[in-house]
Amino acid sequence: MYLCLCIKANLMPSFFQLMQRGFMVKIRVGCSIKSLLCNQLGLSQEYLEERIQTILLDGRPVDDVESAIVKQESTLALSAALPGLVGATLRKGGYYAPLRSHISHSETASSQPIQEGMISLKLFNLLLDELGPTFLKKGIWINGRDLADFLNGQPDDFWSGCKCATVDGKKFELDKLTQIKWPDRHVFLRVKTC
């Protein structure tokens, strides 16, 4: 299924909790994190180096974005700079990385060819504001039950800021969106501002 929502721009943060939990994107897997973020998703090298300070691949802090390979169904989490000793410890290639060496990501040569696939992406803190709207406009895949929970949990001011919706390409009344039985599998969500 495919839901497209048209909303006021100030409602974008409403979707950020979903994006913290993780959403699926279709990409070409088997490449490095750097290749994914810069070549496929269009982020600048400077943004990757300066802004994205902490990267976790399948729950393991990454130090080298060129050798860490994104595989089918990998989970990639991206964060801006974090406070505290642990924040510094988790930073990619940081001075304090030895403090978490037991969980650090270490890459072995990729046995997977570069091919179409899906990964789970998690955006945290400042990156939610900076990257979240772009992903929402392009469209993300999320579990239908999570979408149902999200829609059911929205207050009145969310719905008053929603302008229109389409489901599977057809116009749909906003007040009936919560009545849809979303399937327990990935559905495609696009959110545009208008």
Partner: peptide
Amino acid sequence: GTNILANIINEAAA
């Protein structure tokens, strides 16, 4: 605030 840490520490399984 300091609770900015929660998501990433959770993701690191610590």
